[in-house]
């Protein structure tokens, strides 16, 4: 899953650095992810994993890092193995 998230980040994250240089726990906003890009990432994840983020998860914390995104998605798909 994290690989897929990295792919989506590379495509839509608009980060000034290469995604493979960003650690799983690094703060994506500090790495340069804009508010606009974060929404594009959310949309891409909704499409890729066929899910919809409830408003309660639409906050900074849920999308702060690759780890946080994976956890948010896992919480919605309920599939821990998908994280492998």
């Amino acid at each position: 899953m994290k690989q897929k998230i990295r792919e989506l980040l590379a495509k839509h994250g608009g980060l000034p650095v290469a995604v493979d240089q960003v650690a799983d726990n690094a703060d994506l906003y500090a790495a340069g992810m804009s508010s606009f890009a974060s929404v594009q990432i959310m949309l891409a994840i909704e499409e890729a994993f066929d899910l919809e983020f409830p408003d309660s998860l639409l906050n900074r914390k849920s999308f702060q890092s690759i780890d946080a995104i994976a956890k948010t998605v896992e919480g919605l798909t309920g599939s821990a193995e998908a994280a492998e």
């Binding site: 508010s35 606009f36 929404v39 959310m42 949309l43 909704e46 983020f53 408003d55 639409l58």
Partner: peptide, 13 residues
């Protein structure tokens, strides 16, 4: 512009 972006994922209350 910012709100229109947010409304792509956030559902209106």
């Amino acid at each position: 512009g910012n709100t229109s972006n947010l409304l792509l994922v956030h559902k209106q209350d």
